[in-house]
Simulated assay, not measured.
Amino acid sequence: MIKAKYALGSAWMIVAAFLFALMSILVKNAGTQLDMNPYELAFWRSVLPALIIFCGTLVRRQTLKTPFFWGHMKRSVAGTTALLLAFYGLSQLPLATSVTLNYTSVVFIAILSIVWLKETPSLKTWIALLMGLGGICLMLKPAFESDRLIQTLITLSGGIFTAFALLQVRALSLMGEPAWRIVFYFSAVAAVISAVVATWVGWHRLTPEILPYIAGIGGAGLLAQLAMTHAYHVGQKFTVAALSYLTVVFASIYGVVFVGETIGSLEILGIVAVILAGVVSSFPEKKTD
């Protein structure tokens, strides 16, 4: 029975990884084919979850009031910055590269845990950190030799903000904040900030060609979040965390097969190293007596 439950959790994480990849693909295509800017796409990605959770609280007669308002603001601003940088990367870089750079947060979580939280790293953490840093270096080398260095570094910086946001999520969860409230504040703040930036850059008028992308990005992002949450609820958390890196695999396959993107050998090695760093970081710590 327990094995069947864990298998179900793994299946839900595979679904979530596919949906996250689909969202990235739709963002990429909306930017390249319809010339939509990443900031308006981030708005449509964020506003749907915010509205659904808000309506859900009204139906269930729950409250959005929280004693940890500023904790939510720090998490939400960091998460919003990471989201905008991720969508920027999707508009500027090959799909596989941009998605992988978004998953470097595991490296920066390790660094922040050592420097900021003063935690003593385990051997597993050191291995994951060194593998992740090696993967980043391999991916940056081609960028130094091309005209995309600035775009690559900007996208990579999103991993730092994602790491900070995830550490803040952990802190809020330990203080007893429910996941739906954390997601609501992030989605609401992201919708507001991205709307302001998109207004400054410029909006596209909604057309029959644009509407499917908007619905797909918002829907895929929301369903992916729900599938991932359910996967962690019913599955074995270490296996589920490792399977989350299938998003990189799905996005890479699409970029190479259907878009015709080319990935150099160094970039492939870098992508593999980052994925392995994430998998290693998901392993449970060895218990000592």
Rank of each mutant, 00 (worst) to 15 (best):
K3M: 08
S10I: 05
I14H: 04
V15C: 14
L19Y: 01
L19C: 06
L22S: 04
L22Y: 02
S24I: 01
A30E: 05
Q33T: 11
L34A: 10
L34F: 08
Y39L: 00
Y39G: 00
E40Q: 07
F43Q: 01
A50R: 00
L51M: 08
V59A: 13
V59D: 09
Q62L: 10
T63R: 08
K65V: 04
F68Q: 08
K74R: 14
R75M: 04
S76A: 14
V77Y: 01
V77I: 12
L85R: 07
F87V: 05
Y88N: 09
G89N: 09
L90V: 10
S91R: 06
S91Q: 13
Q92V: 07
L93F: 07
A96L: 04
A96N: 02
S98W: 02
T100E: 12
L101D: 01
I109N: 03
L112Q: 15
I114F: 12
V115Y: 10
W116K: 14
L117W: 11
S122N: 09
T125C: 09
L133V: 15
L133I: 15
S146F: 07
Q151I: 04
I160R: 06
F161S: 04
F161Q: 02
F164C: 06
L172P: 00
G176L: 13
A179H: 12
W180C: 02
F184E: 01
A191K: 00
V192T: 11
I193M: 08
S194V: 02
T199H: 09
H204E: 11
R205C: 10
E209K: 10
E209H: 12
P212Y: 07
A215S: 05
I217T: 03
L222D: 01
A224M: 03
L226A: 13
T229K: 06
A231Y: 05
A231H: 07
V234T: 12
F238T: 13
V240C: 06
L243F: 03
T247L: 04
V248N: 07
A251I: 03
V256K: 07
E261M: 04
I263W: 10
S265D: 13
E267V: 07
A273E: 03
S282I: 05
F283W: 12
K286P: 14
K286L: 15
K286V: 13
K287P: 06
K287C: 09
